[in-house]
Write a protein that binds this DNA or RNA. Structure first.
Lengths: 211, 211
DNA sequence: TTTTTGTTAATGGTTTTCAGGTATATTTCC
DNA sequence: GGAAATATACCTGAAAACCATTAACAAAAA
């Protein structure tokens, strides 16, 4: 059976880039370039009255910064998938953008294959990051890790058990130590991680891949 | 300056595969194939007395299943990076293995470039998954999401605030509702997520990308 | 060898969470 | 319009978590 093509919007201040992207997508039967824009404002206005499946969004726009476009777009059409296109590999932008609902990040030297793959994937609910972007994400994650407070083996163990929802007494039994000792570990953990309860501790630990 | 080469072990029941991998890595100055094994037991024995940086581990071993090798390996040498090599794209194995400390997953049709890239990356503390593996991970993540208990907007909001370490009273103030109402939401959340305290709730929520 | 760190444990108190109910507006959907 | 889901609010008592402070002892590091 024949599916409706994926409708995409292209937003980029360079018409040349737009034409290039359109050319790359020309042969793809399943993808339709519905509309193109060269600035942020007209894109948002368009989305007030129209829908689309995927947006290819450049970060360097004349009026609005691409990063600041993400939320307004999602406010208008929350199901739209945003694929950010950038010339550079800027770690700061990448991390900022990804925590904000963007489904993928591509560099402009992308080929037809990668581009279509990315579009299909985000359309189906997945994500797609260019390989070089993945590396940056890992590095920034690694950077975070080094400046993290050092936990002892015992503390990590207790932290894990807490994150599993176990109570002080259960943990004490499991480790053959006094509940009071477990309390001490718990308290030291909270102090080291600068939080004031177990819930925040678990969150922090998971965000920083401590568990 | 000249770095010490990355020392790797190869574990695979087919000598042919081992030779193939060795050939692929032959030209890489920075990588040294230190030792090869065709079964699990001898690998573990070796690791009782020796170290290495990276292990290329096949999942189909004659004696021990590759999946069950992960923990014993990490118990002996916790800093060793495990790269799983598999012939197939088995989603069940992939998800099992990755939550267990494995740093990467490659298919056996891997080329020299991808192989060396993967080794360097995991050695430096990163991760590397073959592209096809990424897709599987996303799909299984998507599957999980659908069968998740449905939370109302308000419940999600409260859940987020709890995960930020806020107390019932703080949340009540922030949302301009009674603390008792917050308690109710908290209770409903715990019931829906089938957990018995806030720590476990935060963990569950984060694991399932609810927050 | 002295100092620091990790693990253990205690006292004694305050605050918060948890679990059992009950109940009533307000949306949302059929 | 009416039923179901959602958001709101309350009560009570037990359990658990949280706070501050102190300290013994062993192992590791300086």
């Amino acid at each position: 059976m024949q599916h409706k093509p994926i409708e995409i919007l292209i937003v980029d201040d360079h018409p040349m880039v737009i034409e290039g992207l359109k050319a790359l997508l020309d042969d793809e039967e399943g993808i339709l370039v519905k509309e193109c824009f060269t600035d942020g404002k007209s894109t948002l206005t368009y989305l007030d009255y129209n829908v689309a499946d995927v947006i290819l969004l450049d970060v360097n726009l004349p009026d609005i910064n691409g990063v600041d476009m993400v939320q307004p777009i999602l406010d208008r059409r929350k199901d739209i998938k945003i694929l950010v296109l950038s010339t550079y590999n800027e770690g700061s932008i990448i991390t900022k953008v990804i925590n904000n609902g963007v489904k993928g990040y591509l560099l402009k030297n992308v080929g037809a294959d990668e581009l279509t793959t990315a579009i299909y994937r985000v359309f189906k609910g997945g994500v797609y990051y260019a390989e070089s972007v993945q590396i940056i994400l890992e590095e920034s994650a690694a950077q975070k890790t080094v400046q993290l407070p050092k936990l002892t083996r015992r503390e990590k163990h207790v932290l894990n058990l807490i994150a599993q929802g176990k109570r002080t007494n259960d943990i004490a039994e499991e480790l053959f130590i006094s509940p009071l000792t477990v309390e001490t570990h718990r308290r030291n953990l909270m102090q080291k991680l600068k939080v004031s309860n177990a819930a925040a501790m678990v969150r922090f630990a998971m965000e920083n891949h401590l568990i």
